[in-house]
């Protein structure tokens, strides 16, 4: 494994058992299935997919906040190395300070009974990272300034803040322990467009300044296109395509990625109805189709797709795709408009 890789997952699966009916069979939700991916240091790595694709669960599994059923996750920042499946309680404590999560809803993520200062200081106090109250205060002020919160703000309670400001408080709390790896789960989805741009710019700025590695989980492809430098697309718990952002948006290979891109409503009123429309909806993760998971909605599915599950194949530098027919679809122009 190269030294530049911060997080590496191999054949990672997360299954949640469902309690079956009294006499019914036990069911299992296969939220994430056989995912292998490497996230390089300093990357702004995007993870996209629709609801039920397992993107949030994968993000949590990489933080060891979801039970890993199978496979391995290795974290290595040069100073410390953790195997998440074999991690000890002590190791986990260390890993918690090195990895953090920013939530979607800034209204639910902050305790209404704590001042902003206490909210941001809590990780430091819980993890015992600072020796004195003065040191804690200094760290809080420092990170608050980076997130464009002033001293006046620190004394107030969250209810006094707007959505954008609250999200900046959540970001400050996540970054105060000086983590190396941050998972941002739909962190701008609840914000208005005019505010969203501000938070995205802030995340990008901080990432560059602090040399962080971000996993940016989102359903919004336009947002991902603007902030991420590498993107992985998920469908029903599998990675279907991963590529550098520009490559993915310029030359998507998987039929699902193509459909997803063309489904984004264009801002051009004269560009109506050209989109490749997908039929049907994402299948339930308890009752998955055989073969390729996308075959039920794929306009190009043939027998092999219904039988064998495709593996990720190398397409070009850093670009991998899990489709039996990607080469054919790329070479044969007649299939592209089918």
């Amino acid at each position: 494994m190269s030294n530049d890789i911060l997080i590496s997952a191999r054949d990672l699966s997360v299954h949640f058992p469902l309690r079956g009916g009294l006499f019914g069979p036990k069911q299992v939700v296969r939220a994430v299935e056989g995912v292998s991916l490497d996230i390089e240091k300093g990357r702004f790595f995007g993870l996209v997919g629709e609801s039920g694709s397992g993107k949030t669960t994968l993000g949590k599994a990489l933080l060891k906040a979801a039970p890993i059923t199978r496979g391995t996750v290795t974290y290595d920042d040069g100073e410390m190395r953790h195997e998440l499946t074999e991690i000890t309680a002590k190791g986990l404590k260390d890993y918690r300070s090195r990895s953090q999560l920013i939530f979607q809803d800034p209204y639910a993520a902050l305790s209404p009974r704590m001042t902003v200062r206490d909210i941001i200081a809590e990780p430091l106090e819980v993890m015992g990272l600072t020796a004195s109250r003065e040191e804690t205060d200094e760290r809080v002020r420092e990170i608050a300034a980076k997130c464009r919160l002033n001293l006046e703000h620190l004394r107030r309670f969250p209810h006094a803040f707007s959505g954008g400001q609250r999200q900046r408080i959540s970001i400050a709390r996540a970054l105060v322990s000086n983590p190396r790896f941050v998972v941002a789960d739909e962190s701008v989805a609840a914000l208005d467009v005019s505010i969203q741009a501000d938070v995205l710019n802030l995340l990008k700025e901080i990432q560059q300044e602090m040399g962080l590695t971000f996993l940016f989980v989102s359903h919004d492809l336009s947002v991902v296109a603007h902030v991420c430098d590498h993107v992985a697309v998920m469908y029903l718990g599998r990675l279907v395509e991963t590529a550098p952002t520009r490559e993915l948006f310029a030359a998507p290979r998987h039929p699902y990625t193509k459909a997803l891109l063309s489904a984004i409503p264009s801002l051009d009123p004269d560009d109506r109805g050209k989109a490749q429309k997908l039929e049907g909806e994402i299948p339930s993760p308890t009752n998955q189709p055989p073969g390729c998971k996308f075959q039920t909605r794929c306009p190009f599915a043939i027998d092999i797709c219904r039988r064998d599950e495709p593996k990720l194949e190398h397409s070009s530098t850093g670009h991998e795709v899990a489709c039996h027919r990607w080469k054919e679809l790329m070479d044969d122009r007649s299939l592209q408009t089918a």
């Binding site: 707007s162 467009v193 505010i195 741009a197 710019n201 296109a225």
Partner: peptide, 24 residues
């Protein structure tokens, strides 16, 4: 104008996003 400039657009990845200053 501000709303449109703040919108991440797929046909233009190079222009940085311009937020509308302040909050609603």
């Amino acid at each position: 104008n501000g709303l449109i400039a703040a919108l991440p657009r797929l046909d233009d990845l190079d222009t940085p996003l311009t937020p509308i200053p302040g909050d609603i």
